[in-house]
Nucleic acid binder design. Structure first.
Lengths: 263, 263
DNA sequence: TGACATGACTGGTCATAACCAGTCCTATTG
DNA sequence: CAATAGGACTGGTTATGACCAGTCATGTCA
C-alpha cells in the first residue's frame, strides 16, 4: 500500500467552496502548486484520480478536468493502468505555453524588470491597425520596453493598444521598473485576454536592438508577435517581442491533444 | 428559430459506434472536418452544444470534450450565453501546436517534399545522447533532409533516432522525396509519439544552411529542437529544424487553458 | 520452480441529471 | 413610446454512477 499522499498535498488544500474560482481550477492550482513547490518530486507519482477525489472532496469529473489541463500543459503525463507522473522539465526556461514575462521570470527564480524605451500615443501604421481591426492611422498607445532578467537585457518588447480601450494609460509613470502592463489592463481596465494568436520567426537584429541586447552584429534574434483578444473577441493589443536567443529561448511542452503528428 | 444545422453537419456524420476511436474524438474530427471543408464559414456560428447532442446522439459530456479540444486548439472559441464560433485564422501558416511538416503543408495546400542530405548511423554526441537518455557514443540513426514546399527549400531537418528502436530503418531509400519518417515509425515500428518538448530559438545560419535555404549571408534562421516521447514515456527521437524565416514562420493559436497571462 | 490465473488497482470513456450566469428577444407595464 | 420583467436560450460547472482495457502483485497449479 502506498503511503497516504496527504502529507504531500494538503487535504482540502486550497479547496474552498466559497472561492469564486471553479472547483476544477482550484484543484488544478493546488496540484500545480504542489509540483512547483517540489512537494511532488519530478518524475514522481501523483495520487490516483480516485484518491484525489477523496482528498479534495470533489467529483472525479472535476479531478479529471484539472488533470486534463495539467496534461495538456505538459506539467504531468498519464500512463493508463499505472498512474499520473510529474513530467521532467527541460534544461532552459520552463514555459508551457507562452506566458507572462514576469511570471516566467519568477517561476525560474529570476527577477524581472524593464527599462522604458518609449511611451506615447501614435497613429497606427497599417501593420498594426490591420490585426487590431482599426482604421488605418487610428490612435494607439505605443509602449516599448527593454525587459531585464536579473538586470540583464533579455527581450525588447513593444506593445500597441487602441487608445479607446485604455484612456489615461500613459498618465502612469512607465519608467517604474516593475510596472506590469497586463496587471494594469486587468485591474484598472478590467480587460482579460482570453485567446491569442502568436507568430514566431527570426531575423537579423537592427543596430539598436543589437546594442540594447548586447549582441555583437550581425546577430540573429527570435521574434514573437502576438495579438490578444478578450472574452468578447475584441482585439486587446499587439505585442512584438525581440528575444536574445541565448538569454531567452522558448520552451513548449506538448502533449497528446488531438493528433501529435510531428515534423 | 435558427435553421437546422443538419444541412451543414451531416446528422450522424462520421459517428460510428463500432469505430475504435472514442466518441469525443469522432465528434472532434467531424466538427474539424466541417470547419476545414468550409461547411462552417469562418466567424460562423456552430450549432449549440445541446443541438450537437441531438445531431450525433451522444451525451453532452462527449460533445463538451470535443468542443474543449477544439477551443484549446484555437479552432473555435466560445462566448457564454451566446454560442460557439469558428475562429478566424491568421495570415500565414495555419498551425495549432507544432505539427507534421507534411500535414501542415497539405493543410495549406502546398505540396511537401524533401531532398536527402545525409542518412547513416553515427555515434551520438553528448548533446544528442543526453536528451535521449542514451550512453554517450551510443549508436543512433542520423537522418538529415532539406524539406521543400512546392519544391522550394523551406526547412533543414535533422533527426536522431536510437538504432535499437528502429532496426533496418536505413534499408529504405530515403532519397525518395515523399517518404515520411513518422509514418514509418508509426506503421513499421508501431511507435506513437505522445508528448514532446520543444525549444525555439534563433541563430545565424551556417554557410551550408544559408546555401540550402537560398538565404544570402549573414542570415538569421529560426531553430526548433524537439524531443518526442512515446506512450510509455521512452524517448523516440530528437529533431532539429532550421527554418527559413520568411518561407516558414510558425503560428500558434492559444486559448484560455489555465491562465492566459501574457508578456 | 516456473507458468498461469486472479483480483485489485490504474486512467479512459460515456451516460444522465441538475443548476448557474450570461445573452437576447419579447411581451407587459408605466 | 420607453423601460422593465419574463422566458427561452447559451456555454460553464458539478455530481453520481458505470464499464473498459491496461498494469501489476500475488497466489495457485502443473
Amino acid at each position: 500500500m502506498q503511503q497516504a499522499p496527504a502529507s504531500f498535498i494538503a487535504p482540502q488544500g486550497g479547496i474552498d467552496r466559497n472561492d469564486p474560482r471553479p472547483l476544477h481550477r482550484q484543484v488544478y492550482d493546488a496540484l500545480l502548486a504542489s509540483i512547483r513547490d517540489g512537494k511532488l518530486p519530478l518524475r514522481g507519482k501523483l495520487p490516483s484520480e480516485r484518491e484525489l477525489v477523496d482528498l479534495y472532496n470533489v467529483s472525479r469529473i472535476t479531478v479529471r478536468h484539472a488533470v486534463r489541463e495539467l496534461i495538456q500543459q505538459g506539467v504531468i503525463h498519464s500512463q493508463p493502468g499505472k498512474g499520473l507522473y510529474v513530467a521532467e522539465r527541460g534544461g532552459g526556461f520552463e514555459l508551457q505555453v507562452l506566458k507572462s514575462f514576469t511570471s516566467i521570470a519568477i517561476a525560474n527564480r529570476r527577477s524581472p524588470g524593464h527599462k522604458l524605451i518609449e511611451a506615447r500615443i501614435v497613429h497606427a501604421p497599417l501593420e498594426v491597425s490591420r490585426p487590431l481591426f482599426l482604421a488605418p492611422g487610428a490612435e494607439v498607445v505605443l509602449l516599448s520596453r527593454l525587459r531585464l532578467l536579473d538586470n540583464i537585457p533579455a527581450v525588447v518588447q513593444t506593445d500597441w493598444i487602441p487608445v479607446a480601450r485604455v484612456p489615461g494609460l500613459l498618465d502612469l509613470d512607465w519608467a517604474v521598473a516593475n510596472r506590469s502592463l497586463y496587471a494594469e489592463l486587468r485591474e484598472r481596465y478590467r480587460i482579460h485576454p482570453k485567446r491569442g494568436q502568436t507568430t514566431l520567426s527570426a531575423r537579423l537584429a537592427t543596430d539598436e536592438e543589437a546594442a540594447m541586447l548586447e549582441l555583437p552584429p550581425p546577430a540573429a534574434v527570435l521574434t514573437v508577435d502576438q495579438i490578444a483578444f478578450d472574452d468578447r473577441n475584441r482585439p486587446v493589443n499587439l505585442t512584438a517581442l525581440v528575444h536574445h536567443p541565448a538569454r531567452y529561448p522558448l520552451t513548449l511542452l506538448q502533449s497528446e491533444s488531438g493528433d501529435f503528428t510531428q515534423y
